[in-house]
Amino acid sequence: MPIKLMAVSRRRPGLTRADYFRYIEHYHGTVARLERFKIDRYIQNHVIDGAFGVLSDTDHKNKVADRDGVVELYFSEFRDMIATLEPQGVTQSRANQDGKFFADEPNNIILMAEEVELPVPNPRPKFNPGLGEPGVGAVKVMQFIMRKPEVFPQDFHRLWRRAHDEALAASPYAQEMFRRIVASQRSRVNDNDAAARAHFRMVDPPVYDLEVSFWLDSMENVGAFRQYLEAIQASPLDFADWSQSFFLYTRPVRIIDDAPPKD
């Protein structure tokens, strides 16, 4: 299982969202392909919509309450990630120097994580070119969950898994529409994140122990996630700070991916 570096960013001042998406896909993405170093896979997730905190909050509790893009960089192993973020013989990679043109860098959130694939009751049964990326779906919901500081990390992951299973069991529309679920669990390797901080230039970023991605066929189906969200937030298991958690509806864009298409 590879290790993955996620950066959750806001666009820099002066850019429209269309400017931002065009730049990161077509210019920054090309730079990354030209200077691939040891990146196995690079996915950009362009944010369509999202919500921060919960309805009962009267104001935002998040340190960051708007996000425009999530990049996911996959490496075979940790050493490859360091070799890419701090390439030997190069003062600063082109990709590193390019960040200031599109991202509000001090505001980045990073998460170094390992993926765990979870079962779904109803994976898409057959190829359908009208429903986005083959095998998964056109829309990816990315949920970032903040651990309550008093909860031990090992218990956080166990309690989340119980709450997730119970919420999914209580959400028939979500059972029908979730095509794929992947949990990205924060790695302790992330505790030495000086290289990643230097690369993405964030300042005092909030720490998220878990991101969960849900793939659906299209934006018309995201109500399935809302059904699931209400169920998991109602769980009596006390593990998450939902006021500091958030979710994003995104459009995944493959920048580097050598894997053949599914289906």
Binding site: R79, I82, E86, V189
Partner: peptide
């Protein structure tokens, strides 16, 4: 060294 989520030992020192 650490164990990956798959349970394999992996060296995680920078090169």
């Amino acid at each position: 060294y650490r164990f990956t989520v798959e349970g394999k030992p992996e060296l995680c020192l920078p090169p």
